[in-house]
Design a protein around this nucleic acid. Sequence first.
DNA 1: GCGGATCAC
DNA 2: TATGGTGATCCGC
Length: 575
Amino acid sequence: MSMPAEPPPSQETASLVKRLAGPSTGKAGLAKDQEDINRIIADVSKGSRFYENEKKKDKELTKKIEHILHLRDELTQRPGVDLLKIEASLRKLESERDLSQTIVHFDLDSFFASVEVLNDPTLAGKPFIVGGSVVSTASYEARKYGVRSGMASFIAKKLCPQLISISHGYSDYSEMSQKVMSICKRYDPSLCPAGCDEGYLNITAYCAEHDLSADECVQHLRSAVFAETKLTVSAGIAANTNKPNGQFHLPFNSEAITSFMRDLPIRRVPGIGRVSERLLESIGIKTCGDIYTYRATISLMDKQFGLLHLLRTHLGIASNSVQPPQREERKSIGAERTFPPLADKQKILEKLNEVCAELESDMEETQWTGRTITLKYKLDSFEVFTRAKSHNRWISKKEDLFAVGQELLLPELPLSIRLIGLRVTKLKDLREPDPSIGIKRFFETTNSSSPNKKRKVSPSGQDELNADPPTEDETLATLLPQHQPDGPQNARPTSSRSVKPDPEAPRETHTYICPVCEKEVTIENQTLNEHLDLCLNRNAIRQAQGEVKPVRAPPKQGDIWERWTKKASGSKKRT
DNA sequence: GCGGATCAC
DNA sequence: TATGGTGATCCGC
C-alpha cells in the first residue's frame, strides 16, 4: 500500500494549526483571511522545537484516537447498549434540574488591553498586545490580523508588523480588578471570581429584594462598572453557570436550554479543551446536540468519555451554586520559571535556587506550609516531567525547598532545561487559628480558649508560634502513616506532651492526623471521636452522592487576590 | 503516593 | 532568536 502523494488536510493538522494560532482561535474577532494567517504561522513555526513537540503530541493523540475507534468498533460488535437506561438517566437528570436560581457570568472585555488604553489613550484604535513572549491580551485592532491570546508574540509580530507590544502592568490590573469585583459584590456578596477579569454571581436574592428583573439588575451592574471604572463588562444570565458569556439571557426552561445547547460547539463547554474536542469529534460529536445522537457510543465507552457528565452537558445542566473561594480549599502552592535552555549543572541549580526563594516568599506571605514537594522541569525539547517526594515534616524554608528540589533533580541530570518549577502540596494552613476552636463552635462546646493563647505542636517541632523548644521526642514524633488500614481507633496523638494549662480553659490538647480526612487536628481527647464521626459521616455522604455527584461548582481559584495584588508593576516597555 | 495529561484563566 | 505561570483534577499505576 502506498501513501497518497498529497495528504488531505487532516483533523490532526487542522488541530495543530489551531494550537499554534492560539487556543482562542475561532472564538471572536473575525480574521481577515484565515488562510493567509495559517500559512504565516506555519512558516514561522516550522522546525522550531516547540512546533516539533506539538507535532509529536498531536501524533500521540492521533494514535490514541485510533485506539478509541478500534475499541468502539469492537464494542459495537456486541450488543449491550441499554438505550432505555440512558433515557432513564436523562429523565432523572431532568427531574433534578433547578431553575430557581439566577446566575450571572460576567467578563471584562479584553481586560488588560482596556486598562492599558485607560493609562495611555493614544493606544485606542491601534493594534497592540499585552504580554511578554506570549500574548496575554490582543486589542480588537490586533485581533483583525489573527493575533490571539496564547500566541507567541514573535508570531503576532509577523502577522502584524506594526503591532505595539506592552508589558504587563499587574498592579494596575489588580487595582481595577478589585474595583470591579467590589462593585459586583453589591449584587451578591458570595461572588465567585474566576480569574482577575471574570466571575459568577447569584443575583436571585438581590433581584427579589430590589424588585428587579434579571436583565435590569445586570444592566445596573454593567452601568455601575462602567461609571466607576470606565471598563466595559459582558454578562450572561442563565439558570446555571454555563457559558456562553456576552449579552445574553438564556430562557429559564428546559426546552429552551436544551435547544440552545443543541448547536453549541462542544469546545465551548468548560472542561472540553483541544484534546477532548478531538476525541469527541472522532466519534462524531461536534456539538452538544450530537451527544444525544451518539449516546450509545458514549455509553459503551463511559470510561473514556464520562456518560453522565456529557448527558448533563447535553441538557445544559451545571452547578448553580456560587460560592466564594475558601482559603482552606487550597491544594497547592508553587513557582516556576522559564529561561534560555541551560545544561550546566551549577547554572541549573542556581535557577532552582531562585525558584525556591520565590516560593519561600510566597509561602511566607500567604502563610502556608506543606509536606509534599513536586519538581517540574521542561527540556529544551519542551517535554515536561515531574518528580515528587512526600516527607514527614512541614517544608517552607528555601533551604529546605532547595535541598528537596536538588534531591529530585540531580538524578535526572545531565539535561538541557528551559524551565524549573517547584510545587508544595499536602498543605497546612499556618494562618488557621486553633482548629479545636472551629470544632468546638461546630458542636457548640463551651469554654473556648483564646486563639492567641493557644499552643500548637508542629510535627517538626519547629517554628510554631509560642511553641516551646522541641524535646527530642517531639522532633521525632511526626505524622501518622497516611492510610490507616485499621481504622480510626488507631489514631493517636503525634505528641503526647500536654500543653501548659490555659487559666481559662485548662485542658489537654493534642495534634492528630485524622485517619479519615487526613487533616491535622488539634483537638481535645473527648472531641476526637466527634471529629471522627463527622469525618466518617462526610465520607458516607460523599459516597451516597456518587450517583448524583458531578454537578460541580465552577473550579475554585483559591487566593486569587494574593496572586494579583502581589506583583508590582515593572516599568513599561513599548516596542 | 507518583507521574502524566488536560484544562482554565 | 523566539512559545508563560498558577492551580486544579483525573486517570492509571
